[in-house]
Amino acid sequence: MNQSNPKPIDDFPSTRSARKVGWFGRHTLAVTLIAIMVWLSALVTGMALILRVSNSPGSAGATPLRWPAQTQIPLDATRPTLVMFAHPHCPCTRATLGELELLMARCRDRLSAHVIFIRPAGTAEDWIQTDLWRKASAIPGVSVHADNADVEARNFHAQTSGHTALYEPNGRLLFQGGITISRGHSGDNPGRSALVALLEHKLSNQIKTPIFGCSLSEVEVQQAVSECKP
């Protein structure tokens, strides 16, 4: 057997020891930690701002407690009537329509639903023909209306896109508010849950939830200092 000294088996340079001293290596651990803390703080702050804005509701307005007499929208005499006001370009309203679609899938026969898209004065006819209009039109059991010069929005005191109201056949207000959990956020939310409960007669008291969406007009913004932006 060979009696000579074998080659050292650890002659490969260790990748750890061979690693060059990097940017952080020349600085103290404190600098590293400070950099990480600053970064984390920036991220936490940013995420908190996002959450805060996302969860800031728009102006709800005072929804009439009784079905407005001057409205052109028909009140169903046999079942509750739902009206939803929407801005045709509001990205947050896509989530609202998604929630309405879920509600209709579950309670279609229990209500009469109307989505009213505002069409402010001076806008072209095609201003209203957006993907939101098409999405609302595609929901079974939903009637879609154009609200020329925001007449109906004013009848129901709607100021924020996504404003939803549910009236009994006798014209009494059952629900007012939004049906998303935050701005443009899909998913289970108090508004949709309340509507389901009311339509299934599990609740009878009047319910109000926050509305998340773009402002329907500048006038309401000026009045209510409500906005759909951070």
Partner: peptide, 25 residues
């Protein structure tokens, strides 16, 4: 969500700024 609206006026949606700056951070 390219733009946010107030009636007939609009501006760049804050989601875009969040995606650029917070995403970049």
């Amino acid at each position: 969500s390219p733009r946010t609206w107030i009636g007939i006026t609009s501006q760049i949606h804050w989601h875009i700024w969040a995606a650029i700056f917070l995403g970049g951070a």
